[in-house]
Design a protein around this nucleic acid. Sequence first.
DNA 1: GTTAGCACTCAACAACATAGAGTGCTAACA
DNA 2: TGTTAGCACTCTATGTTGTTGAGTGCTAAC
Lengths: 348, 348
Amino acid sequence: MGLSERKLKILQAIISDFINSAEPIGSRTLSKKLEMGISSATIRNEMSDLEEMGYLTHPHTSAGRVPSDKAYRLYVNSLMEKYVLPENEKQKISQKLLSKFDELDKVIANAAGILSELTNLTSFAITPRINENSLKYVNLLPVDDRTVILMLVTEAGKISNTTLNLKAPYAKDKLEFLSKVMTMNYKGKSLSNILTLDIIKNFETDIEAMGKLAENIMPNFLHTLENMLNVELYMDGLTNIFSIPEYSDIGRAKLFLEMINKKKEFTDILINRDSGVIITIGNENTDEVMRDCSLITATYCVDGKCVGKLGVIGPTRMNYGEVTSIIEYMTDNLSQSFRLTEGEKDEQ
Amino acid sequence: MGLSERKLKILQAIISDFINSAEPIGSRTLSKKLEMGISSATIRNEMSDLEEMGYLTHPHTSAGRVPSDKAYRLYVNSLMEKYVLPENEKQKISQKLLSKFDELDKVIANAAGILSELTNLTSFAITPRINENSLKYVNLLPVDDRTVILMLVTEAGKISNTTLNLKAPYAKDKLEFLSKVMTMNYKGKSLSNILTLDIIKNFETDIEAMGKLAENIMPNFLHTLENMLNVELYMDGLTNIFSIPEYSDIGRAKLFLEMINKKKEFTDILINRDSGVIITIGNENTDEVMRDCSLITATYCVDGKCVGKLGVIGPTRMNYGEVTSIIEYMTDNLSQSFRLTEGEKDEQ
DNA sequence: GTTAGCACTCAACAACATAGAGTGCTAACA
DNA sequence: TGTTAGCACTCTATGTTGTTGAGTGCTAAC
C-alpha cells in the first residue's frame, strides 16, 4: 500500500494541526477542516491505513490520531512547506545578533538567547573547537615579584591568559628569555598537538634547558592550553519547556532539565553531530534520554572552519519549518560576520 | 502571653519535624514524639496559643500545624542547635574546593557546584565586584597589521583582554606610545572612577592628543572596563527543586526557575545583601517573587575585601543549621585561600 | 493546669455514574 | 469499488457521593 496523494494531504493536515494544538485530532474535526468534500468515515479509513503503515498512533481507543516520529520525518523531508523568514524579521535578527559584542563567546551566548526568544524553545550554542589552531606566540608578562601573566595567542587571534603566582621571585630577563624559548619551541604547532604525548615528553628536557622558572610555569602552560581547547556550552530558554503541554508533567520536565543540565554529556552529543542543518526526531536520537525530543542544530563557521553549533531542543511536536529557517538564517549570519574579519585581513 | 519553656520546646519540635518531613504535624503524633508526659490535649492547647501568637498556621481545620516564617526566624535566632560539621566532611569540602582550579571564576563556579551537591538545594555564587580596584597598566599588543590585543591589568592582578580588529593598519611605535600614554593617564585610578563622567569627558581631548589610533581604541577600552566591573553569577543544582515536595506543583516550579533565571535581577538582589552570613526567610525577602523562599548568603573575601557571595535558595522549610554551617565553612575556606596569595606577597 | 472524651471538620481516596469525543464495522449507495 | 451514513462500542475526563482517618476545639471532670 503506497501513500496516495490524499493520504499525504491528510497526514500533512494531521501533523500541522498537532504541531499547533498538541491535541490528538479526530476524523470528524479533520473532515471539516480539510474541505475536500470527504466524510469523516472515509478519513477514518485512511487514518486506519496510515496507522497500519506506522505514520500515526493512538493514545487510546477513543482518542484522535497523533503523528509518529516516522510521520515527522516524512513531514520534514517532503511534506512541510518551506518557511520564508519575512525581511523585517531578518533585519531584526541581524541587528540583535551583531550589534552588541565583539568577543566570540559573548556573541554566541547572545545568539542562544535570541534563538530561544524567537522559537520559545530551549536553545543552546557551542563555541568552536580550536584543535587545529596553531600557537602564534607565548608571552610572559611581569606583574610583580612573584606574579606573572601567561598569555597564549593563536594564529586565528584567540587569546587566553592566566595569572600565575610563583613560589619564588624571578628575574625579569629570565622571564623574557623563557617567553622567547617557549615561542620558538611551540610556535606553529597546533594546540592539540602540543598536548599530545610526544611533545609533552620533550618538556622535561625543555624544562632542564630553561631552568627553574620553567618548572613553575610549564604545568600552567599545559593547563591553559587544555582550557583553550574546551568547548563552551551556552543555553537559554530553559523555562520555556514549562509552557509546552508535553512537559506539564513534573516527571518529564525534571528528566528534560536534568538531561540538559548534564553539560558535559550534552556538549559531547552536540559536538558529534554532522555539519549543516541537522534534524533528529524522537527515536532517531541515539541517546536514550532524548528519545522523546527533537534536536535541530546548524553549524556556523569561524575563519572558514565550520565547527561551532547553534540549535534548539524541544518536543518532537515542534514547528520544524519555522525553527529551521531561523536557525539557518542565524548561523549564516554568524558565519558571515566571523568571516568579515578574515575578509578584512585579506584586503591588506 | 509569653513563650514558656514548654511552648518553645513544642515549637522547636514542630519545626524540626516539619523541616524533615514537609508534613503538617498533629497533636497526638507530637505528644508521642516529645516524651514529656503531656497529653495531646495539652499540646493542642499550647499549639492553639502558638497559633494565636503567629508562630503556627493551619492549612485547613483538620490538618496539623505548620511553622510560620516568624517561627523559622525564632528558630534560626535561638532555637536551633548549632550544627558542627564533622572533621572529615570539612576535609572533603576543602579538597574539592581548592584542588582543581587557579582562576578565580572557575573556583567560584566550582564552589557553587559543591554547595548544591552538599545541600541538595539550588546554589549560586557571585564573583567579587572590583569597583575599587585601580588600574595598574594598559598594554596594547600587536598581533598583525590590523589586530591588536588590548590588555588591562589591575593592582590586584585581575586581567582582562580583548582582541580588537582595527579599521586601518597601524604603526607599531604608535601602539607602544599609546600604551604608555594610556597607562600614564589612568594608572592608579579606580575602574569605576575612570568610567565616571568627568574622566570620560577628558577622553575627547585625550583622543585628540593621541591621534587617530586612539579614536579606534578608546571605545573598546571603555567597554572592557565595563566588562571588568561586571559581576559574574554562577548557579548550580537547579533541578534539585524537583525533589522538594513544595515544588511538586508545576506552577510553583516554573515561577521558581523563572525567578532564578532572571540573572540580572537575581544578581542585583544578591549584590545588595549585607556582608556575613545572612538568612532571609520567606516574607522577610523584599522581593515579591521570593516570598515563599529562604535565601542564605555568606560573603567571601578576596585580598581582604569581602565582596563575593555564596549561597543557596530553597523552600522556607530548609535545614538552616546544616546549610548555614556548610556555607560559612566554604566562604571561610575561600577567603583564606584567596588571602594566601596576598600573604605570599607580604612575605617578600 | 491537665486530661479524657466527644462532636465536628476536612482532605484524600475510592467507587460509581455520566457525557462526549472518537473509533471500527456494517450495510447501503453511487 | 470507493464512499458514506449509522450505530454500537470504547475509553477518558469529569462530577458525585460515601467513607475513612487524622486532626481540631470544646467541655467537664480530675
